[in-house]
């Protein structure tokens, strides 16, 4: 399956991915100038970690969030393998938040749902990769890193 990969050398920490994910995916208005003033504030699904590394849900093959979810709200799309939150059934218990090894699930107090990246599964191409000015975020086939020496 394809996943989002970030080239650390190219990430400038410009936060464009956060800005446009928040606008395109999370906001009601879909217009940046309005989205920025929306209440509750739109929550982006991608985080620029440290100074310069964009991180979003990894759609783990063995996903602890799916295992921890007590009512099947966190699920995997059988066709694409993408992990997503079925928001209408989320009871905001934050079990998924507790076990995500990347810390990328947002327990939204205002929305009362767990918010995370679904890799724009209903769109043609992930918005963060599309807007990245240096193309640091790319959609690539999952590799087997275990073969590498480290």
């Amino acid at each position: 399956m394809k996943i989002l990969v970030v080239d650390k050398n190219k990430c400038t920490g410009c936060h464009q991915c956060e800005l446009w994910c928040g606008t395109e995916i999370a906001s009601v208005s879909k217009e940046l100038y309005q989205a920025i003033r929306e209440e509750p504030h739109p929550i982006p699904r991608v985080y620029v970690e440290g100074k310069d590394f964009a991180l979003q849900c990894r759609h783990c093959e063995e996903a602890p969030c799916i295992e921890a979810c007590p009512n099947g709200t966190m699920r995997r799309d059988p066709e694409t393998g993408l992990v997503y939150v079925n928001e209408p059934t989320c009871i905001a218990c934050w079990m998924c938040v507790m076990v995500c090894p990347f810390g990328i699930i947002n327990p939204s107090a205002s929305m009362k749902v767990a918010i995370k990246c679904d890799r724009c599964r209903h769109m043609g191409y992930p918005i963060c990769a599309e807007v990245c000015p240096t193309q640091a975020i790319k959609l690539e086939e999952r590799k087997d890193y275990r073969t590498k020496a480290f």
Partner: peptide
């Protein structure tokens, strides 16, 4: 990274897939 041997292959792969 320093404790890679404590992770299963899938778990570690997942982590390294971030591009780091």
């Amino acid at each position: 990274r320093r404790n890679a041997d404590r992770f299963t292959e899938t778990e570690y792969k997942e982590i390294m897939d971030t591009g780091l």
